[in-house]
């Protein structure tokens, strides 16, 4: 697994596209942060969770960009066969690739800590605890999204298709939070919210409340997605 992880990380850091994605990521985050900062001076108090909350939406589009290549490229170039015959287990391949994407995401996330630091240095930071909670949550949230992206990368040979499918799926999971607007039954709306990503973030981590069930939800999504990906690779090996 470690070998796969290092190989993927090396690939990330030696590919110009990764830096372009990271630049776009910080550009978008910076734009939102500056707008939020201006608002916090004129109309309302600064919310330490505003950038992570925005990130919870932005990741619907960025997570597939980070994962689309992972297995789809191996499928397209035929190198997956070599990989499957190498002395590494399917689990090691999948988990190693996933952890590399998660590590890159973690680095990007660390970079966004500059925003709370700026707020803090200006003396307008209301609650560091909320920031810590929001960041722990968005780290797990991102992990879950990346794991879903890995599944779709394993399904198809096309990176574009993998990205499109995972974006669509993640958008559905993100929108599940709004199910109440279209569903008349409270019980059904509640069930859909429990299944959605935002339902486990916006009213807990993002407001400074750590709930074990939310951590289990994100960990569960990661495990289920990786489990499915491993099964997909095993089926490929069996063919």
């Amino acid at each position: 697994m470690w070998t796969i992880f290092r190989r993927e990380m090396a690939h990330y850091f030696t590919t110009p596209v990764t830096y372009l994605i990271a630049a776009a990521f910080y550009g978008l985050m910076g734009l939102y942060f500056n707008n939020d900062l201006t608002m916090s001076i004129t109309t309302r108090a600064a919310n330490p969770a505003s950038v992570p909350l925005f990130l919870s939406f932005v990741m619907v589009f960025f997570a597939p960009l980070l994962t689309m290549r992972l297995i789809a490229e191996e499928n397209r170039e035929g190198t997956v066969e070599l990989l499957l015959t190498a002395p590494v287990s399917d689990m090691a391949i999948v988990v190693g690739k996933f952890f590399s994407a998660w590590a890159l995401y973690s680095l990007l996330l660390i970079g966004t800590l500059v925003y709370p630091i700026i707020l803090n240095s200006l003396g307008i930071f209301p609650d560091l605890g909320i920031a810590a909670s929001a960041y722990i949550g968005i780290w797990l949230y991102g992990g879950a999204m990346l794991a879903v992206g890995v599944v779709f990368s394993a399904i198809t040979d096309s990176q574009v298709m993998a990205a499109f499918l995972s974006m669509s799926f993640l958008l559905l999971m993100w929108l599940g939070d709004l199910a109440g607007n279209i569903v008349a039954s409270f019980e059904l709306a509640e069930l859909l919210r429990k299944l959605s990503l935002q339902g486990h973030y916006s009213t807990s981590f993002a407001v400074g409340l750590f709930r074990a069930e939310d951590a289990v939800y994100f960990a569960g999504i990661i495990m289920i997605a990786l489990f499915i990906t491993i099964r997909l690779l095993e089926l490929r090996r069996a063919r």
């Binding site: 609650d127 810590a132 909670s133 750590f210 709930r211 569960g220």
Partner: peptide, 22 residues
Amino acid sequence: VVLIYIYVERAVITVDMTMRGS
């Protein structure tokens, strides 16, 4: 996984991370 989730949800394990103890 869902069973584990339901078990943990029932246990109601929460930590107030806000500095003001909101």
